[in-house]
């Protein structure tokens, strides 16, 4: 039991972050807060990938001829790409929110839906 909780603690963090992020996206009406939730959600996945690559006792994968245990670098590289994607998504999302604020004068989803229904 202890092993299940402590031994896999990084995965528990991933799950907690993931749920927190999704909850924010679903429950908040403020468009900026939704984006923040979305970023937390994505971050949880980054943590997941990095956890996968960790090898116990391993170091940075710098090869200098000596036999050493090193962490799997591939997930880290992958997640670099994913981080770039995440940044791009956040930037685009924020840009959209700016345009929405200009057009609607608000960033509360309730108000926007109401204005959409009226026209």
């Amino acid at each position: 039991m202890v092993d299940l909780i402590l031994g896999l603690y990084n995965y528990w963090i991933v799950i907690a972050l993931m749920m927190a992020g999704l909850y924010i996206v679903i429950s908040r009406q403020n468009l900026i807060k939704k984006l923040i939730g979305l970023n937390i959600f994505q971050t949880s996945v980054f943590v997941l990938y990095i956890s996968i690559g960790k090898v116990f006792g391993g170091t940075a994968p710098i090869l200098d001829g000596t036999d050493r245990i090193y962490s799997n670098p591939l997930p880290h590289v992958l997640i670099l790409t994913a981080i770039v994607v995440g940044v791009a998504t956040a930037a685009l999302g924020l840009a959209l929110v700016v345009r929405i604020k200009e057009e609607y004068g608000t960033i509360e989803e309730d108000d926007i839906n109401q204005m959409d229904d009226e026209s």
Partner: peptide, 15 residues
């Protein structure tokens, strides 16, 4: 409304 639609798509698409 296109802006709002794009935003909604962005959130769901990213998820």
């Amino acid at each position: 409304k296109a802006l709002h639609a794009a935003y909604q798509y962005l959130v769901l698409g990213t998820i």
